[in-house]
Each structure stands twice: as C-alpha cells, then as structure tokens.
C-alpha cells in the first residue's frame, strides 16, 4: 500500500514536471506524460500489466517493467552523453577564444 502510494506520487511528479517543462519535441513531452499516467494506472492495477506483457509476448508484468526501465535508462544515458559532448564543444570554443585573445608574445619575437 505504502509502496504503491510512493510510486504513484513519483509518477504524478514526473507527469506534472513533463506538463510544465518545454521539450525539444512535442512528441517526447506527450510520450513522457503518457508513460507517467500509465505508471499511475498500472501501480493500482498490476494485473493489467501482466495482461499487457502477455500481449507483447513477455511472460510477466514485472518482466515488462524491467525491460522498459532498462530501455528508458539507456536512452537517458545516451541523451546525457550527447548533451555533455555539446557542452564540451562549447567549452573548447570559449577556452580557445580566451587563449588567442590573451596570448603572450616574447620580448624579441621568435628569438
């Protein structure tokens, strides 16, 4: 009961965050909101989860949850790596600009 309440609260939190945040793609926002809403539903109707799992050819509902979680985690990590790459590129450009602007010259250039 308590676990279900906590899980529902988490899903509702994700749902509300997704609702107010801006996304790069509207489709992504919709997907996250749908997923969170489905989460709330299935917490209180675990049997339905098993029904859904059977439908897609997975044995138990719990298995389906594991697979879905793994997939989402993987996608999240990929997105984080790509974000890090972009910010690394920006950092390099900044460091380069500063280095050139503040370059030091020898007293007798070139010796």
């Amino acid at each position: 009961m308590i676990v279900s309440l906590v899980a529902s609260a988490l899903f509702l939190f994700v749902l509300s965050v997704a609702a107010v945040r801006k996304f790069t793609f509207f489709g992504l926002k919709l997907a996250v909101m749908l997923f969170a809403a489905a989460g709330v539903y299935f917490v209180w109707n675990p049997d339905q989860m098993t029904w859904l799992a059977r439908l897609v050819g997975v044995g138990r509902g719990a298995d389906l949850v594991t697979y879905a979680t793994t997939l989402i985690l993987f996608l999240t990590v990929v997105a984080a790596i790509m974000r890090e790459r972009r910010s690394n590129d920006v950092l390099t450009l900044l460091v380069r600009r500063l280095a050139i602007q503040q370059a030091r010259f020898p007293d007798a250039p070139g010796g």
């Binding site: 390099t92 280095a99 503040q102 020898p106 070139g110």
Partner: peptide
C-alpha cells in the same frame, strides 16, 4: 622564455 608566442588554455582540452 624560449622565444615562442604562448596561448594558454585555462583548462585542458
């Protein structure tokens, strides 16, 4: 000191 111009990256890139 060796006679080069030096551009410094503030952090290693």
């Amino acid at each position: 000191a060796g006679g080069a111009c030096v551009a410094t990256h503030l952090v290693n890139r």
